[in-house]
Design a protein around this nucleic acid. Sequence first.
DNA 1: GGCTTAATGTAAAAGCCATTTACATGAGCT
DNA 2: AGCTCATGTAAATGGCTTTTACATTAAGCC
Lengths: 217, 217
Amino acid sequence: MSWSKDEKDGPRGYHHGNLKEALLRAALELIAQKGPAGFTFAEAARWAGVSPAAPYRHFRDRDDLLANVALRGFEQFEIALARAWDNGRPDAFTALERMGKSYLAFARAEPAYYSAMFESGIPPGSTPELRAAGDRAFAVLREAAEKLCAQMPRHGRPPALMVALHIWAISHGIASLFGRGDAAHRTLPMSAEELLEAGVLVYLRGLGVPAEGAQPA
Amino acid sequence: MSWSKDEKDGPRGYHHGNLKEALLRAALELIAQKGPAGFTFAEAARWAGVSPAAPYRHFRDRDDLLANVALRGFEQFEIALARAWDNGRPDAFTALERMGKSYLAFARAEPAYYSAMFESGIPPGSTPELRAAGDRAFAVLREAAEKLCAQMPRHGRPPALMVALHIWAISHGIASLFGRGDAAHRTLPMSAEELLEAGVLVYLRGLGVPAEGAQPA
DNA sequence: GGCTTAATGTAAAAGCCATTTACATGAGCT
DNA sequence: AGCTCATGTAAATGGCTTTTACATTAAGCC
């Protein structure tokens, strides 16, 4: 019945039907266009075809919506990293490099998620779920570090947590400073991917890691 | 000469006397309290005791003020880094470690500047002055990398620019992710300073740098 | 000292946002 | 059919940003 017909996805009646989802998608799109700062609650509502007050039925406030976008971002991020890591196949070293590329690829392909996650001003611990999702994503990196460290000689073996933090830091640093080609970032004499790969390579050599199957010199 | 008396610093009459400066200081204070996102033009004006429209005589808009804060931040940052570098004394290695500590100390001591510089959404190239100031700050790091590389055996000597970028990235990554102890960041099993120092140490070992006066093994 | 001018503030208004409250609609269950 | 709760709407409040017309004053010039 409804009033006219049934337009693919537009709001059908008094009730939207899937507003929460629509708002999350709208927010993602708006953040992609104007950054987390430029994103407005009202515009997301407009985008979803509802009144400015409607979103409050699904999110406590603007920050809550932002935090949910970040949450979803961490989930996607974890998936992407885990897929790249692929359980350390064929070997930890190769898989780690692959994960590094995946890290930057995510930041580039999903700038809205990435900025919601790291540059929106939403504290990581603003909600337990958010923190947990962030931790799960980091856990992938940490697992990689564990596996990498495990195959080092027991002697000077570094703490895997520290290694994971270092790699996270340099990855995030590169993504954040040079992440995308847009005007919002600095330009580089090389690609971010090359820069990260080289950095991790040097770092791992510093740990004595490639003493695995490759030649140390 | 003045109008009524001379009260230390309060606005004396119709004209403020030093509004631009007052606004910059107010912005810095407000950003420190509520982050770059929470900072408002109107509140800065209130803080300076002028009407909401007054700031427009000194800054094109809110972003312009933010950019000027960032500009000032880069200048301070350059000074801090240069002081720590101290021309590479007593040796490049020691001086670099000192600069790393200085980097984090700045981020911690001047979170408002740091976030205006890197986390405010103001693009680095939004104005030529801003870009130049950023470049000057980076130049200090780059000089350090040059000096460090210069003392390496000519053979496998890495590009100094790349080294500078790597160190910048890991420094920024750590500052940005774990920078301050506040709720806005993640907590660590060690201090950010220790983490950075260890990371740079490993990285430099990977480059073969400490083959200077120390023992390579 | 007067006059002129440009710099610096103010007042008021338009338009957007976030958020709240009271009310409306309708989906699902009995 | 009747109830009830989830989900929307309308309208209002209070801030913020930015613009425009106007007020005040600092400074230079005679």
